[in-house]
């Protein structure tokens, strides 16, 4: 006997309430647009702002990126390296939060509490001063030769941007990563602690060393569990990277401020910039959601 196919589920429909809500939102948008147009008498002009995205080079006659696009690239670089750096710091600190060594627990706890209880801006001002005036000179990073082939090559430019701005970029990156990693630390700690005690015990019972136990058993399971909050924190990192503009890292927000001041086209500039941030964050969330689904499928 073959069984019947399941009956189709009822389709989800828009109700009157849904329509009313949409109508309300649309009315609000129209009202704001009308205010801007008739009351503010705002002169929309996208062409000047778009010219700061890309322009035709006078000498070569080719399209080249202008300030806003350069800022976008710097922000993407910040997001990329910042995510990696923050993930590494967060993983180590998150593990320290849970490990048996008291000193490591205290250090990681102090780190988290310190950062969580200071406004990001204040932290970044202090840390920027420390990094750029103390740490980099101590490491000799402030005197790297910008023209050496190690630095002045296409790969370096692709990965880190202009060699001349490298130390500036790096200090912003470290500030950002240190700040976000405190939150990742707490996510990682929660992930590790959510793993059943039986997993530790089973690993120890078959004679795994602590390192192997963490690497083979605990971290892989913890990472799968924390993927959603981790994605959220990475997106927060991208958005928070705008703060770095205040220590003169030439990322999207910093350059947009300049463009808005030069052109006087505040709305156009910031709407465009908002669109750029939205695109990066949304793309990131999309990629992460796919990753999550993949990780989920591997368990089935």
């Amino acid at each position: 006997m073959t069984r019947r196919a399941p009956p189709p589920l009822p389709r989800r429909r828009l109700t009157v309430l849904d329509m009313a809500l949409f109508g309300l939102v649309a009315a609000a948008v129209v009202f704001v647009a009308w205010r801007v147009n008739s009351v503010l008498v705002y002169n929309w002009d996208w062409s000047r702002v778009l010219g700061f995205v890309a322009r035709v080079d006078d000498d070569t006659g080719q399209w080249v990126s202008n300030l806003l696009l350069q800022g976008l690239f710097t922000t993407i670089r910040l997001a990329f390296w910042g995510t990696i750096l923050a993930a590494i710091i967060g993983l180590v600190m998150g593990y320290w939060r849970t490990c048996d060594t008291l000193a490591l627990r205290i250090i990681s706890r102090a780190y988290v509490e310190l950062i969580r209880n200071i406004p990001p801006l204040v932290f970044i001002f202090i840390f920027y001063f420390f990094i750029s005036s103390q740490l980099f000179p101590a490491l000799g990073l402030d005197s790297i030769d910008r023209d050496s082939p190690w630095v002045d090559n296409v790969f370096f430019r692709f990965a880190f941007g202009e060699p001349a701005l490298f130390t500036n970029f790096l200090s912003g990156l470290i500030c950002l990563a240190l700040f976000e990693a405190a939150y990742i630390t707490e996510i990682v700690r929660a992930g590790i602690q959510s793993i059943d005690r039986g997993q530790w015990e089973a690993g120890r019972a078959i004679g795994l060393s602590r390192g192997n136990l963490l690497r083979d058993i605990i971290f892989p399971q913890a990472v799968r569990k924390i993927l959603p909050p981790l994605a959220g924190q990475f997106i927060t990192l991208i958005k928070d990277s705008a703060i770095i503009s205040l220590i003169s890292v030439q990322e999207l927000t910093f350059l947009a401020t300049e463009v808005a001041a030069t052109t006087g086209k505040t709305f156009e500039t910031w709407i465009l910039v908002a669109g750029m941030y939205f695109a990066i964050c949304y793309l990131f969330a999309f990629v992460f959601a796919r990753l999550e689904r993949r990780a989920g499928r591997a368990r089935r």
């Binding site: 059943d196 997993q199 089973a202 019972a205 795994l208 083979d216 399971q221």
Partner: peptide, 25 residues
Amino acid sequence: MVFQGFNLFPHKTVLDNLTLGPIRN
């Protein structure tokens, strides 16, 4: 040791559950 709650590693295949100890230890 065998536990009341099995405590198998859910993210590894049955075979990998078994080979982990011999390989690592």
